[in-house]
Nucleic acid binder design. Structure first.
Lengths: 130, 130
DNA sequence: CTGTATCCTCCGGGATACTG
DNA sequence: CAGTATCCCGGAGGATACAG
């Protein structure tokens, strides 16, 4: 992360804009390199730890655990342990997480509409500066 | 950002989920500690450099410049220089940026609906772990 | 007023090895 | 299988000084 700071809210508290405040609450929840990937992977039913490790390509075991813990802490995921041997653990998206996923589609639509324009703007900018 | 990585897209290309891909394009655009604050500050008309420095509380001159450059590069802001002395520079949100702002409201609505639940989940989680 | 140039700190996140 | 424990590095971002 985003070297994602964790105090993003401060600035907006400062600017006294409540819309910005809530907006950044979301970002704090969704930021980090892996949160969204995991949210998506769990969007269609319970998933086991190993499945996530395979599905979310490139993630390390450490970051998988850490991100899962954070999502669980925020109530976006539920962790279910089956006391068998070998152990089996499932992660299930909560309703809140599913709603979040819905809301994110508004952003994907924005990206879809403007991705070409943005790429063009970027190219133009980069070319004008050599 | 967040230590916001810049290669978030890779993971989702990996998982072959186009929704995730576009989703992360947006996050890359909006992530970082200051992008949203600046976007909001420019949402209601052209703003000068100094105004931004005052409005976006806590931002350093360096990060203000860097974030402005990135937003300009992506075509979200237009930079207008008035060759006066002392110099005057205005930053204006483009239509694309304004549309983005609209889309973000879906997320603020989500945060508004669930902020209490999330805070509660977090408290419960933290208490259960001492 | 609007920046640029440097230096430095902090922490997200990868690699690797170990455990119940 | 599902984690923890360490060590380490790169880069986001703050502080400060200088410049057109």
């Amino acid at each position: 992360m985003v070297q994602r700071n964790t105090d993003v809210t401060a600035q907006v508290h400062g600017s006294h804009d409540s819309a910005a405040c809530t907006m950044l609450e979301v970002l704090d929840r969704v930021s980090g390199k892996w949160a969204i990937g995991i949210l998506l992977a769990t969007a269609h039913g319970p998933v086991r730890f190993m499945e996530l490790e395979r599905t979310v390509k490139g993630i390390s075991r450490r970051m998988l655990t850490l991100t899962l813990r954070n999502l669980e802490r925020d109530g976006l995921l539920v962790r279910t342990v089956y006391p068998t041997v070998p152990p089996k653990v499932e992660y299930t998206a909560t309703d809140i997480a599913l709603e979040l996923y819905e809301s994110l589609t508004s952003l994907t639509s924005w990206a879809g509409r403007h991705r070409a324009a943005i790429a063009a703007a970027r190219d133009a900018y980069d070319r004008s500066a050599e």
